[in-house]
Design a protein around this nucleic acid. Structure first.
Lengths: 224, 224
DNA sequence: CTGCATCCGCTTCGATACTG
DNA sequence: CAGTATCGAAGCGGATGCAG
C-alpha cells in the first residue's frame, strides 16, 4: 500500500496494517499459529499471491514470525511477534464495534467455529469484573467442526482452539450464527443450539451472557 | 469495497470502515465537523472523487451525517453520528499501536497541528487516573497554524480545536514532530519548542508527560 | 467560491494455473 | 505443501471540468 505520508500515529499504523486482508490475517494468527495452507483455508476468498505478499510485508514490519517447523517436514509456521500480539486490543475494539452487524445473521457469508472465540472476546471488550457467581467458568464451543475453549477467570477472558474432548463446565454446540446469537442475545430461536452442563454451570453461563446481552441486543439490527 | 463475506464482527466492521482513507476521514470528523473542502485540505493526497465516494458510503452506513449549513452559504457540513463517534476507541487503540512509528520523526510526511490532539489521546489510551498533582490541567498546543486545547480532568482527557487566544495553564508551541516528541519523550532536542506557563503548571505538565514517556520511549524507534 | 463528476494512466486485487 | 506467475477486472491518484 502506498503510504499516506502523514505524521500521525493512526496513519502510520494504517501504513503497516491498513491493507486489505491484513487485519484478518492478524486475527487468524491471534487465534493461533498457522501454516500457509491453514491461512488460505481460514481466509476464503484471499488470493494466494496476496497472502504471500501480506505475510512478507508483515514479517518485514516485525508483526509476524515465520519459522521452519521441525526438520522432518518442510512446513513453515507463521505466528505473531510480541508486537503483533499487541494488536489484540485494536482488533477487539474494532470487532466490538462490529457486533451489531452480526444481528443480520449469517446470510451467505462464510463462517468458522474458530472465529467464535474471537467474537466472544469482542463482546466483553473491557477488562471486566466477572462476579464470583460467574467465574471461574470453562466453556467449550463446538461449531462448524472447530472447538474453542473459553475461560473466564478473575483476571479476564481467554479463548483458544482446543480438541473435541477437552473437559469443560458447559459446552455449546450449533451453527455459528445461532451460537453467536445465543451469546450476544440476538438470536430469536434458541432451539438450534445445544447446551450441555450441570445446573450450576448453566446458571453461571446465564450470568455470563447477561453482560453480552446488554450490548449485543442494544443496538438491534444494523445494515451489514 | 468488496465484502469479505465472513460471519465475523471484525470482518463486518472492515466491510464498513476498512477501505483506504475511510478511517482517516473518521479521524478528521472526530477532531471536529468539517466541510468537504476542509477534508480535502486535511487529507493531502486523497482524490476528490474518492472523498465523495467515501462520504456517501459512510452516510449510507449511518456513520456520518451531512447537513446543509445555514442558508446564506451553500456549504455542507459533515459530522459523525453517534455510531461514528463510537469508533473513537478503535482509532485511539490503533493510533496507540502506531506511536512507536512516530519516533522516526516527520521525514517528508505532511503534518498538521490538528492531528496532535488526537495523538495525545492515543498516548493515554486507557481511562487513566491522573493524580491530584496533575489535574485539572488545561494545555494549549499551537502548531502549524492550528490550535488545540487539551483538558485533563479527573474523568479523563479531551482534545479539541480552539482559537489562538483561548486561555490555558500551559501552552506549547513548535513544529509537530518536536511537540510530539516532547510529549511522548521521544525527541532528542527540546530547544525547538516553546513552553509557556507558571511553575506550578509546568510541574503538572511534567507529571502529565511522565505517563506518556513510559510508553513513547519504551519501544524506541521502529521502521516506519 | 464549494461540492462534486468525469476522464485517464497506473497500481492493486482476484482467480486460476503452475512450479520446486 | 508453500508458495510464483499470469492476466483481466477493479480501484486509486491526479488533473480537469462544471453546475449551483
Amino acid at each position: 500500500m502506498k503510504s499516506y505520508g502523514q505524521f500521525c500515529s493512526l496513519a502510520r499504523s494504517l501504513d503497516v496494517v491498513g491493507d486489505r486482508w491484513t487485519l484478518l490475517i492478524v486475527r487468524e494468527l491471534l487465534i493461533g499459529p498457522s501454516r500457509y495452507s491453514d491461512l488460505l483455508r481460514s481466509l476464503p476468498g484471499i488470493a494466494s499471491n496476496l497472502l504471500a505478499d501480506r505475510l512478507r510485508m508483515l514479517a518485514e514490519s516485525g508483526v509476524v514470525n515465520s519459522e521452519d517447523a521441525p526438520p522432518p517436514t518442510s512446513a513453515k509456521v507463521y505466528s505473531l511477534t510480541e508486537r503483533g500480539r499487541s494488536l489484540q486490543p485494536v482488533l477487539v475494539a474494532l470487532a466490538h464495534w462490529g457486533v451489531p452487524y452480526m444481528a443480520a445473521g449469517k446470510g451467505g457469508d462464510n463462517s468458522r467455529g474458530r472465529w467464535l472465540g474471537f467474537a466472544i472476546l469482542s463482546l466483553y471488550p473491557n477488562e471486566m469484573n466477572f462476579g464470583d457467581t460467574v467465574v471461574p467458568l470453562r466453556l467449550r464451543i463446538d461449531s462448524e467442526g472447530d472447538h474453542i475453549l473459553v475461560e473466564a477467570g478473575p483476571e479476564g477472558l481467554t479463548a483458544v482452539p482446543c480438541s473435541r474432548d477437552v473437559a469443560a463446565d458447559v459446552t455449546i454446540s450449533g451453527e455459528s450464527d445461532d451460537v453467536f446469537g445465543f451469546l450476544a442475545g440476538q438470536a430469536m430461536d434458541y432451539s438450534q443450539i445445544v447446551v450441555v452442563g450441570g445446573d450450576d454451570a448453566r446458571r453461571k453461563l446465564r450470568e455470563f451472557t447477561k453482560y453480552a446481552h446488554t450490548y449485543g441486543a442494544e443496538l438491534g439490527q444494523l445494515r451489514p
